Amino acid sequence: MTEPTQLPGRDWLAAELADAMDEEYELELEDSTLSLEISKIYKRSHPDTIDRATYFHALMHLQSELIKLQDWVQNTGEKVVVLFEGRDSAGKGGVIKRITQRLNPRVVRTVALPAPSDREKSQWYFQRYVPHLPAGGEIVLFDRSWYNRAGVERVMGFASDDQVEEFFNDVPEFERMLVRSGIRVVKYWFSITDEEQQMRFLMRIHDPMKQWKLSPMDLQSRVRWEQYTKAKEEMMDRTNIPEAPWYIVEGNDKKRARLNCIAHLLSLIPYQPVEHDEVTLPDRVFNPDYERAVLPPELYVPSKY
């Protein structure tokens, strides 16, 4: 039997690095299907964005630190919750993708809850979020969170004034309870300008791969821009507590927003490298009497590419 071909150390590392960069480049190509005119306008409005090589290098360094953070959280039994809030199209999902891209989904998971059911509407407001909170050794990223009540529910009239006021009275103590229980709570608000959101919405409208991201609620957020602004300002004023402060991420430049947010998150948590036992690949056991069965061809996926 032929032994598998092994690349020299440097060649193997270069191949792995190239594969990782290809993976990230695939994500960056999400803008490639835009109408050419809108793409040109967008690039003109972001002339000083980070070049791709610099961005990839910084991102991969930060992702290697995220792996250390993950190991530390798992090893120490820490519990971390990170909330991602902001206007529609502000870039929350892009940052979450880059955070989770190389991490273990059993340790780091994303929660993006749909609209509440009739049963959930009758519950204590925070009740449907509580089951998703982390156990020891877990990090949970909320792609929108209980702050829906202070934002979309309030602006769109899905919550009454009394419900909103009750939320503002309750949420500081709810988050203090989480912190007292040993959960680290981090809250990010992704901020973009009116003009930037308009451009990103136009990009989604003209990109068939992104049209699914536009909901009637998203379109209404354009109409009610000022109402959302007022709601955000009151939310920040009434829920920015020492135990769980808000951090604002400037999001007009997507690449900088991703790098800045990840670097800041890493700076908030006192993680340390975790000692690991050295891993050695055991020798393959060869049985001279074993003969691999020939499987019927219809079981194989056709090689179309």
Rank of each mutant, 00 (worst) to 15 (best):
R200I: 09
Q70I: 02
R200W: 00
D161V: 15
L133Q: 13
K230Q: 09
R52P: 01
I241C: 09
L268N: 02
S64K: 11
E85P: 07
D277A: 11
N260H: 08
E278Q: 13
V179A: 11
E65G: 00
P47S: 07
G136V: 04
P216Q: 12
S160H: 11
L295W: 08
D19L: 13
S215Q: 05
P8E: 08
V185D: 01
K210V: 01
I99N: 01
W225K: 03
S267A: 08
L66H: 00
I205L: 14
A293G: 14
V130L: 10
V82Q: 10
P116A: 08
W12S: 15
F142M: 06
N75D: 13
H206W: 12
L259V: 02
M236K: 04
E24G: 00
N287W: 12
I38R: 10
E26N: 12
A15E: 08
L295C: 07
D237N: 04
V155D: 09
P47Y: 03
E23M: 07
I241D: 05
M217G: 14
P242K: 03
L34C: 14
N148L: 04
P242D: 13
H61V: 11
S181E: 15
D143C: 03
Q63R: 13
L299T: 14
R292C: 09
I241L: 04
D143E: 14
Q227N: 11
G93R: 01
S64F: 03
E166N: 08
D19V: 08
P282M: 05
E298N: 13
E234P: 01
S145P: 08
D71I: 01
D88S: 07
Q123T: 15
Y247V: 00
F174P: 03
K254H: 06
R102N: 03
I192V: 11
